[in-house]
């Protein structure tokens, strides 16, 4: 039952490793975007500290968006996607495998890099744990929702920008609770509620997004 899941996961990770330059680009983009903000809002430490978590979250969101086109594009172009849609196993399973591989390769590096970049904004040390956890819970949600958008816009001209337009409104709640978790922690209210909501959102997205994604892929391949 899980042979397609394992096969797809292994293959996507292998492909990412062999084409690893692509992957590093997403991380580089994340770093560059974060570094842009002081130039835009001024380098005043208190201001940067206040906007730091939000900036990191927005940058992570934009980096995820940019990397989404890679999720299905190659498989669609070479015909593998059709073959995957013909497997007897439920499509939601191998779709989850693809999204998982994609997150491991593009989202996880962001989660690891974020606390380091947070130092550039002098974010308080105690908050770094909450920040990392919020991103660890939130970036998979972004990947899952983004995958649905990527499937809907598969093969379209102007796909990247269209994908952003479709998916950004859906990203807002994740952004609110993710960045809000850090602010709540720093404000003394505690981040538990935010993190629990993010966790719940992740479970919900895991349950629903692969099905929507599989349906969208079938439509795109028709």
């Amino acid at each position: 039952m899980l042979s397609a899941f394992a096969a797809v996961l292994r293959r996507d990770l292998t492909l990412a490793w062999r084409g690893r330059a692509d992957v590093l680009v997403t991380l580089a983009f994340f770093v560059v975007v974060v570094c842009l903000f002081p130039f835009g809002v001024g380098a005043e430490t208190n201001q940067l500290r206040a906007i730091g978590p939000g900036v990191l979250w927005v940058a992570a969101l934009l980096s995820t968006l940019l990397s989404l086109h890679r999720l299905f594009a190659q498989d669609h172009a070479d015909g593998t996607l059709e073959q995957l849609l013909l497997t007897p196993e439920p499509a939601a399973l191998w779709v989850t495998a693809k999204i998982a591989a994609h997150w491991i390769v593009t989202g996880l590096p962001l989660v690891v890099a974020a606390p380091l970049l947070a130092l550039l904004f002098d974010v308080e040390q105690e908050a770094l744990g909450v920040l990392t956890l919020s991103l660890a819970l939130g970036t998979p949600i972004l990947a899952l929702l983004g995958a649905v958008g990527a499937a809907l816009t598969l093969g379209l001209r102007g796909g990247g920008v269209l994908l952003a337009l479709l998916v950004l409104p859906l990203y807002v709640p994740v952004l609110i609770f993710g960045a809000g978790a850090v602010d709540a922690f720093l404000g003394g209210v505690g981040a538990t509620a935010h993190l629990l909501l993010l966790g719940g959102g992740l479970l919900g997205a895991l349950a629903l997004a692969p099905f929507a994604c599989a349906a969208a892929l079938r439509i795109a391949v028709e």
Binding site: S3, A4, A6, A7, V8, R11, T14, L15, R18, G19, Q74, D75, A77, D78, G79, T80, E82, Q83, L84, L86, T87, P88, E89, W94
Partner: peptide, 22 residues
């Protein structure tokens, strides 16, 4: 479309096609 990924060898492609098909 031959469902072939350029970065994988023919053997890896064939193995994947079989495993993905169950």
């Amino acid at each position: 479309a031959p469902a072939l990924n350029d970065l994988l060898t023919p053997l890896e492609n064939l193995r994947f096609a079989l495993r993905a098909g169950g």
